[in-house]
Simulated assay, not measured.
Amino acid sequence: MLTDSSAYFSINHPFDVYLSPWDNTNSPPSAELLSAMLPSGLQLISDVKALESDCLLQLRHLDDEAKTVVEFLKLQSRKIDMVLQHVMAQEQYEGDKYAATHFGGSGFTIISTEPLELGLEFKATLHIKEELVALLSIAKVQSCRLLEQAQSKLISTPNDSNHTVAHYACEFSFTVIQESDVEQLVKASLSLQQKQLKLRQLAR
């Protein structure tokens, strides 16, 4: 599925992205083929999250007398989340690992010590552990700007030493992503936004 790059807002939150260059001489895969490319661990997470989403929709129609059932299902959901956390931690992700700073339903931003060529496409795996998001997509480099020295000092990478290392903020847009994964990213961004607002209120 192709997304409209202006359709969703982006939230500031640190997470991991794994990038593998996509051969631009080949057409990007369809959403169906992308699904078939998922490793078993990511497929399990995708299936469980889809089932959980369907279940939550049905729970909204239950009346107050079903509160006990709802609480039990929430407990079961937390148990499943613990298992998924373990699966995500054990998964071996393909590609080079990058620290990412922003994400939304339209794309994400990573920090790189080298500039990336605009227009290049990558197979991108996003791993947002706090929201149990682990998904596969095809994404294109939309922009890549050199960060100012003050911003770079706030970022540490495995290759950094005592000397100053240039850092680039590279923005990607999704060119192929499953609709269910877009929904995951939107829900995750809203959930994190609520958590950030609560933290700001407590800090006042």
Rank of each mutant, 00 (worst) to 15 (best):
V83D: 10
W22G: 14
F9I: 01
N12Y: 10
L118Q: 03
G104D: 04
K74D: 01
L202K: 12
F172S: 07
I155F: 03
K123C: 13
S77M: 04
R78Y: 00
H163D: 14
S112F: 01
H61C: 11
C55W: 11
S35K: 12
M82C: 10
L154H: 11
S46C: 07
A169S: 15
E148S: 12
M82K: 15
H102S: 10
A89Q: 13
R60P: 05
L136Q: 12
P14F: 00
F103L: 08
E171Y: 10
H127I: 08
I11A: 03
N12M: 11
G95F: 03
V17Y: 00
F15I: 09
L73P: 03
K74Q: 10
T25W: 05
C55I: 14
L62V: 10
Q149Y: 04
I11D: 00
E32N: 11
S191G: 12
A89M: 12
D96L: 13
L116W: 02
S35C: 02
I155R: 04
Q149E: 07
T101R: 12
L84P: 13
L185E: 03
Q149P: 02
W22N: 13
A134R: 10
L116P: 00
F9C: 03
V186N: 00
E171G: 14
H167D: 02
Y8A: 11
A139N: 05
D23M: 02
M88H: 03
C170P: 06
A139Y: 08
L42P: 11
H163N: 12
C170F: 07
I80N: 12
Q201A: 13
L33S: 07
A139K: 11
A169Q: 15
K187A: 02
F172L: 05
N12P: 05
Q178C: 09
M1I: 10
P14V: 02
K74P: 00
M1Y: 02
F72Y: 15
P29T: 08
G119C: 05
L51V: 06
T68L: 08
L120W: 01
L118S: 01
T113R: 15
S161E: 12
T3F: 03
A166C: 02
A99G: 12
P21Q: 04
E52L: 04
C170E: 00
Q90M: 01
M1V: 15
L2R: 15
E121I: 14
F174L: 12
R204Q: 14
S112Q: 07
T157V: 13
S40V: 04
V83Y: 06
I177A: 04
Q196C: 08
S156A: 08
E65G: 15
S173C: 09
S191N: 15
L192R: 14
W22S: 12
S6E: 03
F103Y: 00
D54N: 09
H61Q: 09
G105C: 08
R200W: 13
H167E: 05
P158W: 01
L120I: 04
S191K: 15
D4V: 06
Q85V: 01
K153M: 08
I155K: 06
R204N: 14
L118Y: 00
D64W: 15
S6F: 04
L185V: 13
S5W: 00
H86T: 13
S173T: 09
V141M: 09
N12S: 14
S106D: 06
S53M: 07
L126M: 11
K187T: 00
Y18H: 15
S30E: 09
